[in-house]
Each structure stands twice: as structure tokens, then as C-alpha cells.
Amino acid sequence: MNLLIIRPQPGNDASAKRAREAGFKVTQFPFFKVRACPWSAPDPARYDALLITSANAIRHAGPQLDMLRHLPVHSVGVRSGDQARQAGLGVQSEGTADAAQALQAAADAGHHRLLWLAGEDHQHLAPPPDMIVDQRVVYASVPLEPDSAMAEAVLRSDVIALHSARAAQRLAALVEQWQYPRTAITIACFSQAISDAAGPGWRAVVIAERPEDSALLSAVQCLATVSDEANIRDAH
């Protein structure tokens, strides 16, 4: 099974390595390039914790992050938590679902004044009524210009891995631009929210039980098993 990975670097290489180790044939074609955004760190005394929803926030926060190192981190997933630790931050909680879970973990820890280091394109948060979440945009994912090689990579893939809502929306727009039928394309999504962003009409959609590559690959493997069994039944 040929798995197409379109997330930006360096996550693309990391996901591709895990997929190959799991036995997949992998095509790598980033649809985005991540760049740092200029920002100013606010007075850290105003906050009691950091909210991190992407490892890219840590990678691209720059020297301003030094002012915030004493604040505990609530991360959405394992990768963002690992990146925070590598940068010398203390991780208070590490989620397995979404930002809502991270906000609940912060509330459970008694943290009610959070600073969220976010991407330019980000989801809407609904914190508890007694929680303040201030946001600073520290990075942006810039779409790469589509070309024939990108279109061919989509056409030749068996499954396309979607790690973000932005990637799902970009894929949907390009498929329409190239006039490819969605019914010919299978997508594997990191979360239900990403599946929702991709919209309906795909040949098949699989959703990871948690936002980790291991869970995503397991979901794709289950799909492959079901497809193989169906082919065997058809042959008989």
C-alpha cells in the first residue's frame, strides 16, 4: 500500500520513517513549508502555563521562548510534548486527543491563565468560563505551489495521510482544481476534526484513535486488511 505524506518538514520525514518501519511504501510530497512569524512574548507573570498544540510552535518560537521557560506546558500530543522537553520546558500534561483535552488538563492542574503559542491558521478554542487563553502566532504554514508532480503523487497514492485541518482543506481544494473525483481517493486523518475539514465524498476515510502516527498507521492497516478480505470474497 502506497501512503502519501503531505505534511511539512521536518514532520514529513519523521512520519515517513515510522510508516516505512511499519511496512508501508511511502511517497513524500510536502504541501506546505513552515516559517517563523515575528512575535513578542508578553509579560510571563500574567500566565501560569503554556498551551502547545503543535511541535512547530516550539521549533519556531525563537529566543522569546526563553522568557517563558519556567511556565509548565500542556501539550496536545506526544510529539509536541517531546519537542517542548527538547527545548528545556517542563511538560505538565500530554494529551492524546485534542486541544479541548489539553484545556481540561490545565484546569485540573489549577492553571487558568494560559498563553497559547499557535500557528497562523488555528482552530477555535472554547476554554472553561473561568479560564483565560491568550494567543500569540509564532509560525505559519505556507502552501507550496502545486505542479504536475504533486498532482501525480495524489493520483498514484492508495491513501493520503492528513495531519492537520489545513492539509485536509488544501487537499480538497487541489482535488477540485485538478478535477479528480473524491470517490477515487482514500484519506487517513489524525482526528475527527481533520476529517470534518476534508469534507464528504471520499472513497474511504479512516480516523486515528489518537493524534499519533502509530494510531494513524494502525487505522490504515485495518483498512488494508478489510480491503484484502473483500477482494478475497469477490474472487470467490
Rank of each mutant, 00 (worst) to 15 (best):
N2H: 14
N2P: 11
L3G: 06
L3C: 08
I5N: 03
I5G: 06
P8V: 06
P8K: 12
P8M: 12
Q9C: 03
Q9H: 10
Q9W: 01
G11C: 07
G11E: 11
N12F: 04
D13G: 03
A14T: 08
S15Q: 12
R18T: 13
A19R: 00
A19G: 06
E21W: 01
A22T: 07
G23I: 13
F24H: 01
F24M: 03
K25W: 02
V26P: 03
Q28A: 13
F29P: 00
F29C: 13
F31D: 00
F31N: 01
F31W: 06
F32T: 05
F32P: 08
F32I: 05
K33V: 13
V34L: 14
V34W: 10
R35T: 15
R35Y: 09
R35K: 15
A36E: 12
A36F: 00
C37E: 13
C37F: 04
W39V: 15
W39N: 15
W39E: 15
S40G: 13
A41V: 01
P42F: 06
P42R: 04
D43P: 05
R46E: 14
Y47G: 05
A49Q: 09
I52K: 00
N56G: 06
A57V: 13
I58A: 11
H60T: 14
A61T: 02
A61P: 01
G62E: 02
G62R: 00
P63L: 12
P63C: 14
L65K: 09
D66I: 08
D66H: 14
M67Y: 04
M67K: 12
R69A: 11
H70V: 01
P72Y: 07
V73H: 05
S75I: 07
S75H: 02
V76Q: 07
G77Y: 03
V78M: 11
V78E: 14
R79F: 09
G81D: 04
G81R: 04
Q83N: 05
A84E: 00
Q86R: 10
Q86T: 13
Q86N: 10
A87S: 14
G90P: 01
S93L: 01
A97I: 02
A97N: 14
A99D: 12
A100Y: 04
L103Q: 05
Q104F: 06
Q104C: 04
Q104S: 10
A107L: 10
G110I: 12
H112F: 10
H112Q: 11
R113H: 14
L114P: 07
L115K: 13
L117N: 08
G119Y: 11
G119E: 13
G119R: 10
G119H: 09
E120H: 11
E120Y: 08
D121G: 01
H122G: 14
H124E: 09
L125K: 00
L125I: 06
A126C: 07
P129I: 07
P129A: 07
D130Y: 07
M131A: 06
I132E: 09
V133N: 03
R136Y: 00
V137R: 12
V137K: 05
V138K: 06
